[in-house]
Structure formats: structure tokens, C-alpha cells
């Protein structure tokens, strides 16, 4: 991951399925909470008014998240092997 930071999102996705309590997820969780409790970034974590069709955006994000999870699991299995 240090050599390929772009894989972090995929590794996180895979770990969310195969090992949700892993050390990597723990560190990301702590960073997430620190950002959320910072006045500068608070707005990124609060709900805001969205138009009804925004549900399509969320559905796409959800689908991509599922795809990333599959890719993440494959990456993890390849690394472990």
C-alpha cells in the first residue's frame, strides 16, 4: 500500500468484507473520526438537502462500492498468496 497508495480504497473495501476489524481499518477509522470532529471538515459529514434524483448518485456510489469490494477481496487474496 505504501508503494501504491491508490490501492488503499480497494484494500479497505476488501478488508471491510474479509476482516472488518483489521489494523488498517482501525487506523482509517481513527482518521475518519478525527476529521469528522474537526470544525474545518465538519460539513463533509453532515447531511444536507438533496434533490430527489440524488438517489441515483447514491445508487451508483453504492454499486461502485460493491465493485471495489470485489476487487479489494481479489487484491487481498493475491497479496496473501
Amino acid at each position: 500500500m505504501r508503494n501504491h497508495p491508490s490501492t488503499l480504497r480497494y484494500v479497505d473495501s476488501g478488508l471491510a468484507i474479509v476482516d472488518p476489524e483489521s489494523e488498517v481499518r482501525h487506523r482509517l477509522y481513527v482518521m475518519f473520526a478525527i476529521l469528522e470532529s474537526n470544525a474545518e471538515y465538519h460539513d463533509l459529514f453532515l447531511t444536507r438537502k438533496r434533490p430527489p434524483l440524488y438517489v441515483i448518485v447514491v445508487a451508483i456510489v453504492g454499486l461502485l462500492a460493491v465493485v471495489r469490494s470485489f476487487v479489494g477481496v481479489v487484491i487481498l487474496k493475491a497479496v496473501i498468496r
Binding site: A16, E36, T47
Partner: peptide, 29 residues
């Protein structure tokens, strides 16, 4: 659920943190 923050529930989702934030930010209300 509002004042207990996103980080408390984000772990329950089987997704990476970036996508989970985007999804939960919409669903949380």
C-alpha cells in the same frame, strides 16, 4: 440519529470508508 456522528455507524457498513461516507451522508437523516 444525528448527534452521535457518522463514525459510530460507518463501521457497520461493508464498504470502504470513502464510499460509506458518501452513502451514509445521504441516508443518515
Amino acid at each position: 440519529y444525528q448527534s452521535l456522528m457518522l463514525f459510530r455507524i460507518i463501521l457497520q457498513l461493508p464498504f470502504n470508508f470513502v464510499d460509506a461516507r458518501l452513502i451514509m451522508r445521504y441516508l443518515m437523516s
